[in-house]
């Protein structure tokens, strides 16, 4: 398998995500689970970053934090210079709507809606008028190669196609970052590779991509790998296949 990151690594832009000493703990009855124990990280525009780590190491927790789905127990989070840790629910919703595109492991499409309607959803919440909405959703679907599947419902699509719809939905609002939590986790390896190629193309087009995975084969597509263990950053370096394998083992 060729190493894509040897091909081109694009120059990174200004800092988008700036977190400092972030912690997150969950209180479960008597016990307190420390999911994140002080993570500091900076991510720039047009980076392609993988977050790796064993199960339970805090990857998803960090991801939710970066995606403004959750607020830290302590620490500072600045997104495009704005302090996220002090925002209320609705402000966070607005940031998610405009700045962040989510790609989930289980696709999370609305089962009874067409591809087009699924992709339109963030635009509805963004208050875009119906004509523009449809135009942009259709364009986003064409961009991921689903121009002929606009009116299909999720159960009429293959797994790979569903994940493409989800990616189109993540991109339709032109977000600052795309967050993908195990995007290939529910796909066979061939379809998974197709999705990774699509993400690589998005990166080449100038998107910022943050990928959560525990698979080295997937992680090595990224240009930078952050390795978590027990809620702490164990390493943060430029990706190299051998190093990723070494860390993951």
């Amino acid at each position: 398998m060729s190493m894509l990151n040897d091909v081109t690594t694009r120059p990174a832009g200004p800092i988008v995500i700036d977190i400092e000493n972030i912690t997150k703990h969950y209180v479960m009855g008597e016990e307190t689970v420390h999911a994140l124990c002080g993570v500091t990280l900076q991510i720039r525009r047009n980076e392609y970053l993988a977050i790796m780590g064993p199960s339970g190491s805090g990857k998803s927790t960090l991801m939710n934090m970066l995606g403004c789905l959750d607020t830290p127990s302590s620490g500072r989070y600045q997104f495009n210079g704005k302090n996220v840790s002090e925002m209320d629910d609705d402000e966070l919703a607005a940031i998610r709507n405009r700045e962040i595109g989510f790609v989930f492991q289980t696709f999370n499409l609305l089962p009874r809606s067409t591809s087009l309607r699924n992709v339109e959803l963030p635009l509805i919440y963004g208050g875009i008028d119906p004509e523009t909405r449809e135009e942009r959703a259709a364009q986003a679907l064409r961009d991921v190669g689903l121009g002929d599947r606009l009116l299909h419902k999720p159960n009429e699509l293959s797994g790979g196609q569903r994940q493409r719809v989800a990616i189109a939905r993540a991109l339709v609002n032109n977000p600052s970052i795309v967050l993908a939590d195990e995007p290939t986790g529910n796909l066979d390896s061939k379809t998974g590779q197709e999705i990774m190629t699509l993400l690589e193309n998005l990166y080449q087009q100038g998107h910022t991509i943050i990928l959560v995975t525990h698979e080295p084969d997937i992680a090595h597509h990224a240009r930078r790998t952050v390795f978590l263990r027990d809620g702490l950053v164990e390493s943060d370096e430029m990706s190299s296949a051998s190093r990723i394998k070494e860390l993951a083992s």
Binding site: L69, A93, N97, Y125
Partner: peptide
């Protein structure tokens, strides 16, 4: 999902 996509 809707909340993640920006539903308030």
């Amino acid at each position: 999902t809707r909340k993640a996509l920006g539903a308030r």
